[in-house]
Design a protein around this nucleic acid. Structure first.
Lengths: 241, 241
DNA sequence: TCAAAAGTGTTCAGGGTACACCCATGC
DNA sequence: GCATGGGTGTACCCTGAACACTTTTGA
């Protein structure tokens, strides 16, 4: 290794003048859960190259804005929601991924409950909730991004109690179980699932019941965020579903 | 939601003309293992702001180059090695992270064995292997990047058989065990560790022994890459250490 | 009283964990 | 023969997995 090489490694420590610059974007995979379906919020592409295809919601990064802030902005502009679960997944930088020029994009995914958050795009009907299983071709490399984010979600859902973000504040154990079954694409034993949840001690029994059903109403619970954060700090939580 | 909002979400579907562009860099956390120490390959910063501080090896992304190719280039220029284990971790985009201007960086980490790969920077002695435990302050936000990558490595090491990348092709079970103990910062029971490895059926007994030691020589094994890839495909592998 | 979904315990097998001594080699 | 690290087996416990019936409510 010679000096030239060392310098090259640190090219950006000399100056940024005249260096190549790039468009940077953020694409959000907004997952929602609704009546036993995992859906993604997509928009019809208005680019001639991708006529009729769906794309993720995204935007270019703005000056003076971090990637996370950009993702939150996109989320807010799309859903009018703040404090949504949001996680960075991966950068996509293939050369030809954008027809108008080089764009490096950062994929984020979000979780929210559909029923309590009506997303309306009344004027032009371009925004749609689409079940993940029904999405095949998409604009850009968005199918690849979606698949990557969905895999990340599945892995994360098994390791951390993030599923509550997809449910209303009050939920029944059966709702929670079918959420896991839907997202992970597996079936779970009801008794084992309940025993597991019980042992984690992360649910608060609200002593309330469903009241809009025409059969025996289920008891309602909510997620104990405080106890969860405490158990993170003490490292005592062993989640794993 | 009105039309203006929908347009804003898709700003980059109209044109990229005149949009804000960014410097993009790749920073590599090159982990190496050597005589029971996990080390990182660092370079002394030549920037006055970071005098005496160490920084990761990195470089600006070049036109027509993907992030992964840039990471491979940096790795090759630093170590003269190809086919090194390499994984993207996270994008860092804090506004003031670079003193000369806005730079969005993508962190990658790599694994290699130090003893078999002499990294020499004879001319100016700027490259150094530093034990992870001895690194405190670094240039830029590189300490944060390093910590993030180290945590990712620890998690990945428990879930996937990637530790072999830190060892020579031929290794003893004790070497493998102390690698895990060192990187994870835990102690493992020798008999349980061996039983576990045995049940995974991913090691090939080379019917060879160490010959440069002054005690009973250990048997040597190598990692069975083919069997590993097969078991990935069939989904039969349950690793987890 | 019936339909529909809620809720509840036990048994078994396999894997994780704890633990201590003999073995092979070089000097 | 001794110092040094290499190599091996067993017992227990706990967790994960399989499995079917009773209860509550509304209609």
């Amino acid at each position: 290794m010679n000096k030239a090489t060392t310098d090259q490694i640190n090219r950006y420590t000399q100056s940024l003048e005249g260096s190549t610059m790039f468009n940077v974007s953020v694409d959000c995979v907004i997952f929602g859960y609704d009546q036993s379906h995992l859906k993604v919020l997509l928009v019809e592409s208005d680019m001639p190259q991708f006529k009729g295809k769906l794309s993720l919601v995204g935007d270019l990064l703005s000056e003076g804005e971090t990637l996370r802030v950009a993702a939150k902005r996109i989320l807010y502009n799309t859903t009018h929601l703040k404090d949504v679960y949001l996680e960075q997944v991966e950068a996509f930088s293939a050369i030809g991924r954008h027809p108008y020029g080089r764009v490096i994009t950062l994929a984020y995914y979000s979780l929210l409950m559909i029923s309590e958050n009506e997303i309306e795009d009344a004027k032009n009907k371009k925004l749609r909730w689409v079940p993940v299983g029904e999405i095949d071709e998409m604009a850009f490399d968005h199918k690849e991004i979606l698949d990557t984010c969905y895999n990340t979600l599945k892995k994360k859902l098994r390791e951390c109690p993030i599923g509550f973000n997809l449910l209303p504040n009050k939920f029944s154990l059966n709702q929670l179980q079918s959420l896991y079954e839907t997202v992970l694409g597996i079936t779970l034993d009801k008794r084992n699932f309940r025993r597991k949840l019980n042992s984690l001690d992360l649910l608060i029994d609200l002593n309330e019941s469903q009241d809009d059903v025409k059969h025996r109403p289920a008891k309602l619970y909510r997620f104990d965020q405080e106890k969860y954060e405490q158990s993170i700090e003490t490292g005592s939580l062993v989640f794993e579903i």
